[in-house]
Simulated assay, not measured.
Amino acid sequence: MILGAGLVFAGTAHVSFARAEFQAQVPSWVPLDVDVVVVASGIVEIVLGATLVVLPRFRVPLGWIAAAFFLAVFPGNISQFMTGTDAFGLTSDTARGVRLVFQPLLMLWALWSCGSLGALRARREQTVHASSEAP
């Protein structure tokens, strides 16, 4: 629920009050208009977050989708660090570097909080158990 609410909040920020901050993070090599990228990623976040809240029975696959989304936007964080772009109060290389560390943790949190890692582990155990019983 917290992940879903956070995604809805972040998505709302993308399309409204923090739009310029998010635009500053779009790498220059992305071949689309920065506003299109920010609005589209915001819509994806809102839909993903709302789905996590409203349809919890789909949380395991949604955990994988959220982690993939966080991975997909990671180049923007790397670009912000490499170009020294100030956004979201990250005004030093140290602050931008610390943020880079937290993005993989955010991916892991999505997988853990949605039970995606546990489901993968259970599936592997089931496969191992089934193969050990085969004649």
Rank of each mutant, 00 (worst) to 15 (best):
G6C: 11
R96T: 08
D93G: 14
L90K: 13
S41K: 10
A87L: 12
V54E: 08
T91A: 10
A68Q: 03
P56W: 12
W64L: 02
L52F: 11
F9T: 14
F70D: 00
S92R: 10
L55P: 03
S79I: 01
T127W: 15
V98F: 15
I43F: 05
N77Q: 09
V37I: 05
L32T: 04
S116L: 02
R59Q: 12
I46G: 02
I46H: 03
V15P: 00
W29P: 07
L48M: 08
R99M: 15
A110Y: 08
L90S: 05
A119M: 06
L120M: 14
C114K: 01
S131W: 09
A130L: 11
A130Y: 04
G6W: 15
T85N: 13
D86M: 08
L90N: 10
H129N: 14
A95R: 14
R123G: 12
I65D: 03
R123A: 14
E45Y: 00
L120W: 14
L90W: 05
W109L: 15
E21S: 15
S28Q: 13
A20Y: 03
T127C: 05
E21M: 08
L3Q: 10
G4Y: 00
A18I: 00
V38Y: 08
W29V: 10
I46R: 02
I78T: 02
P61Y: 01
P27V: 08
W29K: 06
Q25N: 10
M82T: 07
M1L: 09
P56D: 14
A72S: 15
G84H: 09
V34A: 10
G84L: 09
A40S: 13
Q103L: 07
